[in-house]
C-alpha cells in the first residue's frame, strides 16, 4: 500500500461542520412483543444530504497539469509498480521511519494548539534542510520564540525510553539554542537515574537550558493571542509558567505492520 503518516490534512470546506444524518427508528413501545424492523431507513432527501457530506478524499487528482508543465517530460503516469520475488537467508526487522508515537493525551494540547509540537517535528524544524531551514519558529504564527518548553509526556515506566527521549530533548535544545538568539529553554522531565548519572552534569552546563526535575501536568492557552501556560510539579510544589512554543517528548510505538511482520517471522524488532 501507499503509506501516509497518521496525520491527516483536510481542506476546511465551507460545509464543515454539518451534522451526520440520524437513522429514524420505531419507538420502544412499538417494539415489544414483535420483531418489526427497528430502523426504518433514510428518506431520499436525508440520504442525498448525507452523501453530499462525503469529502471524496483523494490526493493526486490525475489531472496531468504537472505533466503538461514539465519541460523535460519526466512525469510518467504509467510507470508500473515492480514486483520482486526474492529469497533470503535472514531477515532483520527494524522500526523504519514510521515515527509513530503512542496516543498523546489531549491535556498536552497537541492537535489543538499549533504551537505545541512533537519532538519529531522539532527535529525536522532543526534540520538545515527542513521546512524552516533550521530556524526555530512557532508554527502558530511564524514568530521566533523567546521561551520554549520541552516536556515529557509519558513520565512513567520504561527507563530506556525516558533516557533516550530526554537525551533527544537535550540535543534538540543544544541545536535550538545555537541558532536562536536570546532563547531560553526549560526541559521538564522526571529525569531517570541513568540520565542523572551519565548526562545531567553536562546538560546543566548548557547556557540557556534549565533542567527541571519534575512532572508536567497540562498545556493550556487562556485566551487567543496569549502564550501557552504549562503547569508542572517540581520539588513538591506546583508551578505555572508561560512559553511561546512547547515541544512534547513522545513515546515511539511500532506500526501494526511491523508488529505483524515481527510476529509472523518470530523475529524481534531491532
Amino acid at each position: 500500500m501507499i503509506y501516509e503518516k497518521e496525520k491527516r490534512y483536510i481542506v476546511p470546506f465551507d460545509d464543515v461542520p454539518s451534522p451526520r444524518a440520524e437513522m429514524p427508528e420505531i419507538s420502544v413501545d412499538e417494539r415489544r412483543g414483535n420483531f418489526d424492523e427497528v430502523e426504518t431507513g433514510f428518506p431520499e432527501s436525508v440520504a442525498v444530504t448525507e452523501a453530499k457530506r462525503c469529502l471524496s478524499c483523494r490526493r493526486c487528482l490525475g489531472c496531468a497539469l504537472c505533466w503538461a508543465e514539465c519541460g523535460v517530460e519526466a512525469i510518467d503516469f504509467d510507470m508500473p509498480d515492480e514486483v520482486l520475488e526474492l529469497e533470503f537467508d535472514d531477515v532483520i526487522i527494524t522500526r523504519g521511519q514510521d515515527n509513530a508515537f503512542s496516543a498523546i493525551d489531549p491535556a498536552w494540547g497537541y492537535g489543538t494548539y499549533a504551537d505545541v509540537i512533537t519532538d519529531l517535528q522539532f527535529e525536522r524544524m532543526l534540520s538545515p534542510t527542513g521546512p524552516t531551514d533550521g530556524r526555530v519558529v512557532s508554527p502558530l504564527d511564524g514568530e521566533i520564540p523567546a521561551r520554549l518548553a520541552v516536556i515529557q509526556t509519558e513520565p512513567e515506566g520504561d527507563e530506556n525510553h525516558l533516557l533516550s527521549s530526554v537525551v533527544l530533548g537535550v540535543n534538540e535544545s543544544i541545536l535550538a539554542l545555537d541558532r536562536t538568539e536570546g532563547l531560553k529553554i526549560t526541559l521538564i522531565s522526571p529525569l531517570s537515574p541513568d540520565f542523572k548519572e551519565r548526562f545531567l552534569a553536562d546538560a546543566e552546563k548548557i547556557a540557556g537550558l534549565s533542567m527541571v526535575e519534575g512532572k508536567a501536568g497540562s498545556v493550556q492557552r487562556s485566551g487567543e493571542g496569549d502564550p501557552l501556560t504549562v503547569t508542572y510539579s517540581h520539588e513538591g510544589a506546583d508551578h505555572t509558567e508561560t512559553f511561546d512554543l512547547v515541544v512534547l517528548l513522545t513515546k515511539p510505538v511500532l506500526s501494526s505492520e511491523t508488529q505483524a511482520l515481527s510476529k509472523k517471522l518470530d523475529k524481534p524488532v531491532q
Binding site: 519526466a74 510507470m79 515492480e82 514486483v83 520482486l84 533470503f88 535472514d90
Partner: peptide
Amino acid sequence: GAYFARIIQHGLRVD
C-alpha cells in the same frame, strides 16, 4: 532455512 518475500516497489511516476 530460507525466507521468501514478494516485494512491491511502487512506481514513483516521475522519471
